[in-house]
Design a protein around this nucleic acid. Sequence first.
DNA 1: GCGGATCAC
DNA 2: TATGGTGATCCGC
Length: 857
Amino acid sequence: MENIKEQQHGSGEDLLLRVGLNDNKAGMEGLDKEKINRIIMEATKGSRFYGNELKKEKQVNQRIEKMMQQKAQITNQQLRKAQLQVDRFAMELEQSRNLSNTMVHVDMDAFYAAVEMRDNPELKDKPIAVGSMSMLSTSNYHARRFGVRAAMPGFIAKRLCPQLIIVPPNFDKYRAVSEEVKEILADYDPDFMAVSLDEAYLNITKHLVERQSWPEDKRRYFTKMGNPAENATAGKEADTLGERDRAISPLLFEDSPPDVPPLESPFHGNSEEQSGPQVLHNPVVFGTSAEEVVKEIRFRIEQKTGLTASAGIAPNTMLAKICSDKNKPNGQYQVLPTRQAVMNFIKDLPIRKVSGIGKVTEKMLKALGVVTCAELYQQRALLSLLFSETSWHYFLHISLGLGSTHLARDGERKSMSVERTFSEISQAEEQYSLCQELCRDLAQDLQKEGLKGRTITIKLKNVDFEVKTRACTVPCPISTAEEIFAVAKELLRTEIDADFPRPLRLRLMGVRVSGFPSEEDRKQQQRSIVGFLQAGHQVPPATGPAPEGMGTDLLPKPPETTLKKKSFFDKKRLERKEGHQDALKCDGTDEQNLQTSHTVQVLKRTMNENLVSENLPSLGTFTCPVCCQEQGGVSLEAFNRHVDTCLEAPSGREASRVWLGSGAAAAEVSNKENAHCFFSCGEKQDDQAPPKSAGLATGGPVGLSSEAQSAGTSSPNHSKEDHTDLPEHSYHNSAWEGQGASLFGEQECPQPDVCEVTAGRALVCPVCNQEQKTPDLTLFNVHVDICLNKDVIHELRNNQDNLVPQLKENSRSSETSLSRVRKTSAKTKRPTLMKTHSASKKAKPSNTTQTIDTFFK
DNA sequence: GCGGATCAC
DNA sequence: TATGGTGATCCGC
């Protein structure tokens, strides 16, 4: 998407300074900067959003203050020493400078808005934006003159420009157009890298070489005249901007014309559109230089889609990206591949233009007197003392005009998440219900890509825009809605409990899954399973596929161990209370942990031994631990495939429900021990260890081209839809473990109630005795949870001394954990910077002592 | 591993 | 009335 860096409004002074970079020429339509800023401030001031912006700004200022204090303590000697070290590194970077690649950054102009204008002629010549009243993704250039920008709420935009037309986004359409563009790009670099729907990097080095020997025919294109109304809409709009004179042609651009525009042989050459009775006119031949290639690309894009693109050409991606912004819209710019050209280009460039330098970094550097890249270079020694190594290495790269010269293949995905903003929700029931909905959506997405992850993170934003995240890592990868919700619910509960009796006043909730097993992890897993089986272990019959009926088999008592020991989340809460996060992990108590480490070692040894035996004849008879059928005369691979299939099948999933640490689902499979060994994560081997479904990762790695979409809509959709797909066990899982267990004592889980619940009749809350209308067990459990909490608080208030001791402790631990959590705030010891670009090579020891102060001369 | 921040789009 | 959603990374614990 187009660079919106300067368009984002910050707060306070920033907000005023940052908005509206419009150079309004006298007499032109639009607003001047002052007016824009005044309107924005009027709409913003006093809002909760603004309050939070101010708060964040204060934090940044504190960070800067600390940095300045540090700076004041730096001695000249330290600085000299740093200078030598930094210059040594700079010298190495300089020596590795690579100018031999031609990188291109292509960026569609006002993409979403341009598509909408193309498809609806009525929108032409009008200020429009794509998005909603809450948030805009893009605006056209007409609207920008009023200060209407991406990432601006629609209602503010409307105040700036009452005529503004806000078009709801249409991502399917944008995706389709994007695909058309990508088809073109692939002709020049089959390995091009799409950054988003409207932005891509290409390495055209190879294409340029091949192109040198291409005949003209291969470089000849025709102007399509078929549907002139829709043609070049965006280009025309660009023309009206008056940024430069493009009167000659909306298609062929600024500077140099194509090499030779011969008019002969109109029947050879290329045409973007194969179908349709279009008349082809104006043959154009593009040259063989990089500039010509990029013109050709942009020409073809416009011919094919009716939309204009801007582009940058440079010896690396960092520069190419900056270049594409230079002559936007509908223009291009090249930095020639010489060191001198690069340094000239960089010299006066504001660092903020560089991808990776955001608002905060800009402000911090500005405090050190660094605004341009040349200044960044001048202060290199100081920066190396004030920032982390990653950061100053990054800075040094920038100030030398260095960047990536190859396009990294998309790596494996590291996380997947859903989040939603809504109007305030403060009722716990609603919050749980929403959480469940998010988990369902997320599970769907995960399963589409065959992913399972171990870490679940919830994100909460309250009505004051304060954001909190809470995470938990479980022993084995999970992916179903039930599994994820079971964890997320507990994380949410901890937060709700912590603030009790005040409600959490939420405006956003999100759920994320990360910690996907790597390729290596999966292989490891596979090996350990094979090894285990080859070691001759047998799996005794399990309960078999889950019955359909409502038999008591489906309602196992919580395993005794669950009640005897603290639940997983109780432990988590305890951790917070005691303030030592590291002591206890997701599995087990201290003693167990000690045992575990021993067990793991034993297990590892066993696995290694088994690995050796992998060469043994591998045909044999195995019993599938999921379906309990004997598989005779099969290879291990075939057997594993069978197990995979069983696990994927609904009944298999049922039988191997994940262990979430609470132990609540553990009783589901009667052959706990063996099942666990089979699916072992290599962490525990005792008989409390649960069965889990993640032992065999069947989903392959997914190379995704993450096409981030700027969502233009906020959907305040927190409807409580059906909640009918949760397993009966969630009853135990949520209501009775934890407080429930202590309420009713260890042995007496209220079985009668459970039976009543699961018999499909009325759900009667065992705490308040009220019949609950919800058909959903999890929601019912949530209700019981809340009732239990009310009970606790009520009793605390009225009858403190008569409380069951354990109960009192529970409620206290919640309180203390909260205050602890709350107190964790900004803890920046030393100004740091995060960067989103691949780290530089580490400095190797070097003997070079030469100085490089002449870089900018 | 967790939580807060920063950044890009 | 009203200030987004997704993914990644870094840093200090």
